[in-house]
Design a protein around this nucleic acid. Structure first.
Length: 267
DNA sequence: ACGGAAACCTGGACGC
DNA sequence: TGCGTCCAGGTTTCCG
């Protein structure tokens, strides 16, 4: 489920728990999340976590030798607990001196990988620009959009172009920029592109703030990001009133998934 | 190269 | 209550 803001929040909250600490043991409970790399994952045993970061929707642990990459897909989660009292659905557990970090995914779609270098993962090697980095400028976005005849929504979600946007925050960004998600990417005007770039950054910053306040509590087996104050204007609001113009929010299918937009003010 | 659709899993919501 | 169907915020793979 998590997109860039949620993943960034998870990286920040997990950082003080594991950075500088040694992984005393690495246990694979459900090998499916290692995508055939269960053996490799266990190499993390005995390694020290040097740094915690995020690339796109990945959380990366840089170890004193090698890397661990976590991807949450739709339902992946992180827990912090006492080794002998694990929460449900933990697939990979990293034991530290002062606690255990669990990667859990009820649906088993998430992935944990051991890597020599982050670029060994194609999804990371081919990753596009991070929308919260200085490299994400209106000019950069313009170049990305100019090269595609696809609907602008699908281009924004293409991780090889822009890394970190998913279905929710893409819909929200387009609403904020007042652009119809079905528009052909290469037909956006320059002012629209500038507006869109600003909207993406604004939406993600605000979402990150709300993901951090209140911050997720990995010790709580029920934790999840607060949905209430996430400033959602169109996502999952089909039939409800647009807060800007009062028209009814619509849902359409794009790339086999739902897009929400306001037909009144997104043109 | 590009775009579309299916596959990967499980559980929840909904209609009958 | 039970059953079937559809849906889910992501990514990879396959196919035309």
């Amino acid at each position: 489920m998590p997109e860039l803001p949620e993943v960034e929040a998870m990286a920040r909250i997990v950082r003080p728990l594991v950075e500088g600490r040694r992984i005393l043991d690495c246990r694979v409970i459900h090998a499916i999340v290692t995508a055939g790399g269960a053996r490799a994952i266990r190499r993390a045993k005995g390694r020290k976590v040097v740094a915690v970061g995020r690339r796109g929707k990945y959380v990366l642990f840089r170890l004193d030798r090698g890397w661990l990459a976590f991807h949450f897909r739709l339902s992946g989660q992180i827990f912090w607990y006492e080794r002998r009292r694990p929460p449900k659905h933990v697939d990979v557990a990293l034991d530290f001196a002062r606690g255990t970090l669990g990667f859990a995914d009820q649906r088993h779609l998430g992935r944990v990988r051991w890597l020599d270098r982050p670029e060994d993962l194609p999804g990371i090697a081919r990753m596009g620009v991070d929308p919260l980095s200085p490299g994400f400028t209106p000019e950069r976005l313009r170049k990305l959009l100019r090269g595609s005849r696809r609907p602008v929504k699908l281009v924004l979600m293409d991780q090889e172009k822009i890394a970190g946007l998913g279905n929710i925050w893409t819909s929200e960004s387009l609403w904020r920029a007042r652009i119809d998600p079905r528009r052909r990417a290469d037909r956006l005007t320059e002012p629209e592109t500038r507006r869109l770039a600003g909207a993406v950054v604004g939406v993600l910053r605000r979402a990150l703030e709300s993901c951090l306040d209140p911050a997720p509590n990995f010790r709580d087996p029920e934790w999840w990001f607060e949905d209430g104050d996430r400033s959602i204007r169109v996502y999952d609001r089909e039939g409800k009133r647009c807060s800007r113009c009062g028209a009814g929010i619509r849902r359409v299918r794009q790339g086999a998934r739902s897009t929400y937009y306001c037909p009144g003010c997104q043109t």
